[in-house]
Design a protein around this nucleic acid. Sequence first.
DNA 1: CCGATAACGATGCGATCGCATTGAAACCTA
DNA 2: TAGGTTTCAATGCGATCGCATCGTTATCGG
Lengths: 190, 190
Amino acid sequence: MPRAVDHEQRRFEIVAGLWQIVAEQGIEGVSLRTVAARAGVSMGRVQHYFGTKDALVVAGIDLLVKRAVIEYEATEGRPPGDRLLHILLQQIPATEAGRIGVTVWYAYVAKAMTHTAVREILAEATRVGVEECTRHIQEADGLDEAEARSHAVELLALSDGLTLRALIGDITAEEAEALIRACRSRPRGS
Amino acid sequence: MPRAVDHEQRRFEIVAGLWQIVAEQGIEGVSLRTVAARAGVSMGRVQHYFGTKDALVVAGIDLLVKRAVIEYEATEGRPPGDRLLHILLQQIPATEAGRIGVTVWYAYVAKAMTHTAVREILAEATRVGVEECTRHIQEADGLDEAEARSHAVELLALSDGLTLRALIGDITAEEAEALIRACRSRPRGS
DNA sequence: CCGATAACGATGCGATCGCATTGAAACCTA
DNA sequence: TAGGTTTCAATGCGATCGCATCGTTATCGG
């Protein structure tokens, strides 16, 4: 057996460099060399752990989703209304770190249009998001499944749209958050 | 004076090729050579009319926005509720051509995160969109300016979010349209 | 202590990139 | 018809790309 290194840690270091490049220059800026340089490692190392540029890019969105899931699971046990708001507000760029994360996210949304593997990861993530939100709305508001789901899709879409506007600079993060809270607590007709 | 050609026409032919490349391969797929090949012209021609790759890319979003504005202006004279729905529903990918257009649009949204000129074009376009929607809501529903604007931002964000979901395949175009119509006609609390 | 093997760093290769340059048609004016 | 100007095709260049390959180092079971 050779030298034992923390495989997960190595991969994370490299993916962190990838995220920085994507946030600053978009996925266009990603190359084995630029990511290696940003992560402060050799290009050989990147190749060793990811093999191919495409695999590296896919690993980037995969890890991003996994992190978001872990953050969400940390809210387990809190009241359904809180957990719902966590999902709706998590991606609104309040902090600088959050802004980077959500910038990377939307870079991958665009990538998903032309890349099957990325699209499937995002589709699965949004599917789970709708499921969880539907569940929380059912619990919190006592709606039936169909009504709750329609409300969930609406709230999630609103969150997406407002996040985009906050990223472009059209509105502030505070305005986006206020609009989501207002829409979430507004009573709906059938 | 030399050979007289239709400058606008030439530029449009090339940009049409650009849009196809962007829809199929994303902005990553754009190069002077690939666009020239897709448009069926020589690379020299592309250089002659746009000079630089960056200028070509910017021209792509510029023309896309101008086309949307022209389509919208064709609705002049129609009732405000119709014009509002035109803006809200225009980008929902109902037809294949519409799908290509909106795919290109979101490719540029991602590009805007790292490209100042693109960001400013998109910011101006969304600003105008909010203004127009606000005006129509005021006229149609008799709200004051602040309420109408908040409603406009909400409806536009919802439209954005639902469009994204329709693109990824999460929901159908019909479901997206139905949700927008429902939310638009739903009475709001203060 | 010694081979076997994982973990790389370094380097080379062919392809593609953006862009500058060059020169030849094509066309209008005088 | 002579000349000036626009249009544009062709080509060359240096840089960068993804990826394959090769050699070295470090580590641990036997």
